[in-house]
Computed example of a mutant assay.
Amino acid sequence: MRDRTPELRLARVLVETTNTLDDNFDPERYLSRVAGHCVELLDASAVGVIFGGADSPAFAAGGHPRDLALGLLGAQQGGGPCVESLGTGRPVPPACLAADERKERWPEFTALARRHGIGTTYAVPLRQRQTLLGALNVFVPETSPGPCADSEMPLAQAIADATAVGLYNHRAYTEYRTLAAQLQTALTSRIRIEQAKGILAERWHTGLDEAFDALRRYARRERLVMDLVATEVIKGSLDDASLRGGWSEPS
């Protein structure tokens, strides 16, 4: 029977990568874990991820040492595969860093990578449909005995695609949770205001509209939100004279 261990490992990684609907979700920790899985699955020295907006990008990394990937990402300010993939939204195919053209194209990055024994690098975008969320950069050692980077790149893109789905879903989840909380707050506020109107209308023997006008005038005069005024009415903390102000009961 065929040993399916590699396929099972990849399946577990993909399931974990898309499981992001958690209130305690930490993007940096999540992406560092993804990068760590990529190191194992892609036979790499390190893997780094740039994510977030172009104005304030954040880094995540995996590998041993982890600081290697962070340093290689940081060295790409003058150019490098990850920032190119992030800028274009396209993959950057495997590049041999011993080639002279790489030294000219990415001088700072290539010099640092070569000092740490990195022979090949490539990058793939984290994209969910038309939304570009970041880029994933793989650093392969010169002495790597594993498959060539060209054959590994589709696997890296599959993991990047699953990661983008996870990030996108968590973003949507957070937005929906925020919207639900805002709607619940608005509903609760409206209930309190209606309750306060009813209390005043009954106490003053007047209509609900007149009671609401009194609440609104008091809130404007004191520069308070209506919900706070309604809460104080319900608690009995506001006297009628303060609430009515210059308003007189209809005859």
Rank of each mutant, 00 (worst) to 15 (best):
T5Q: 09
Y176N: 12
R90Q: 15
P57F: 02
S242A: 15
F59M: 07
E210G: 12
N169L: 04
G52C: 05
A113N: 03
T178V: 08
P81V: 06
S32M: 08
A61E: 00
A46G: 06
L86S: 13
R177E: 02
L136F: 03
T5L: 11
S237Y: 13
C82R: 02
G71P: 03
H64N: 09
I191H: 09
P65W: 04
T17A: 07
E222P: 06
D161I: 10
R66T: 10
Y168L: 01
R4Q: 14
A58L: 12
D3C: 01
R192P: 04
R114K: 11
L228D: 13
H170Q: 04
G79K: 10
R29P: 00
V140W: 05
A196P: 00
I118W: 07
A160W: 01
A60F: 11
D213F: 12
H170T: 03
A123D: 01
E152C: 15
D3I: 08
I50F: 12
A111D: 08
L14C: 03
Q195P: 02
M1V: 10
V83A: 08
E108D: 13
T110N: 07
A162E: 01
R129A: 09
L73S: 01
L31G: 00
G48T: 09
Q128D: 07
S237A: 14
A181Y: 06
C148F: 14
P145K: 14
A180F: 05
A241C: 08
G87M: 10
R216P: 03
G134C: 03
T185A: 15
A160L: 09
A75W: 09
L183Y: 10
Y30C: 05
A44H: 05
T174R: 15
T88W: 06
G78S: 11
H37Y: 13
E142M: 13
T110I: 04
L208D: 12
T88N: 10
E28R: 15
F109H: 10
E210W: 14
Y176M: 10
E16C: 00
Y30W: 04
G236A: 10
N137M: 06
T163S: 12
D240C: 05
I159V: 14
L132A: 08
S85L: 05
D22M: 11
P91F: 04
C38M: 15
R244H: 09
Y176C: 03
A211Q: 02
T206S: 08
T188S: 14
